[in-house]
Design a protein around this nucleic acid. Sequence first.
DNA 1: GTATGTGAATAGATTCACAGCT
DNA 2: AGCTGTGAATCTATTCACATAC
Lengths: 224, 224
Amino acid sequence: MNGGSDRREVIPEATVARLPVYLRGLVELAESGMATVSSVELADLAGVNAANVRKDLSYLHAHGTRGVGYQVDHLIGEISLALGGGEPSPVVIVGIGNLGRALSQYDGFVAGGFPVAGLVDADPAVVGRYIGGRVVRPVEELADVVTESGCTVGIIATPSASAQEAADHLVAAGIPSILNFAPAVVHVPEDVDLRQVDLATELQILGYHQHRRMASGANAGAVG
Amino acid sequence: MNGGSDRREVIPEATVARLPVYLRGLVELAESGMATVSSVELADLAGVNAANVRKDLSYLHAHGTRGVGYQVDHLIGEISLALGGGEPSPVVIVGIGNLGRALSQYDGFVAGGFPVAGLVDADPAVVGRYIGGRVVRPVEELADVVTESGCTVGIIATPSASAQEAADHLVAAGIPSILNFAPAVVHVPEDVDLRQVDLATELQILGYHQHRRMASGANAGAVG
DNA sequence: GTATGTGAATAGATTCACAGCT
DNA sequence: AGCTGTGAATCTATTCACATAC
């Protein structure tokens, strides 16, 4: 089954998804001069349960001191390490429409270690334009862009109709990690990691809860 | 805390999150003239397991026909109904920077029943500008904007430092559902529904997997 | 006394496997 | 035969509660 026992511990997905949130909180704490933090404080900062924080951190090499808490600096180091080893991963954005343009100038990417290193688009009217100091290149040159700038992450910001095509291009160019903003399900080989960010879907989920609340509110009658 | 037994069935969160994806697939099928669809086909379209689809649909009033499948039209109706009753929910966007501007012109929102009905910003330099035919109004007038256009959803697209303030404004204006794009944890009262879309976090999660894959790849050759 | 680390308990989601209908 | 509907089994995640350490 497994090729022997992993020495490196496996971190559960749910934990991985919370680590960036902890990291943000910890960086803020460090900036405000805090040296240690308790699981309760960190939980509050991240909006989760304290036991959850402790269990999450137990998956890292991070160790706290009983009666005291965790060392902020150390924790920042451990989490950064787990999340990509501190090496920046340049990203290439496919599809430079409204969203692609906004993403290419999004500060959070650079801050998080994901500098935007390439922009490509299929539309000749967009190719050649400069966005935030970078030129938009034709999608045919994607493989070159990837090679030249060492991109390891691709962002799909095309219309849904072109999303699968964009994914295929990225896969062909050897990109192992893809973030898809197009509201479409795309298929990639097993060894490619794909995540979906679906803006309209998020709103629809909110819509469900809103609808439900109104429905049950009507049932329950007036609430004080 | 539950006021007795709900007549209306409760739909699990994980199911709710998949319904919009099914809906998209079904609309495409309807456009291409398909009248019925099997759970296997729909699963393929949505990128999930077929048993999962069947269980999900069993939470709705949707019923399939054994040996045949589900009626596409009917299913579209049932899912739309569950997700907000078919009523459009106008949204107001707080923070009209790069991201806010892109979101205000995002087609997917209108298509999904979430027309952008209001734009507000705290920066006087931005207030008064026209984005996609709508004027940006000062954040102080948020409550008026909400009342005038009947917004029920707020989108936070401010810098993280202003995110909590934006949330407070939205809550004060009576908005029950908030989608936060700022990379910051914001706190809202229990009766307000808050969802987080964190772009940098998504990349960091991809980064973790990438890092891990490389690490285990290296280990596979020479483990000590 | 305070706060971590973790086994056990609980809750939630996915997948399997098959009975039952068309 | 083909496909739905669903109990049971499995897997994953969260929360509790307390022994352990400072």
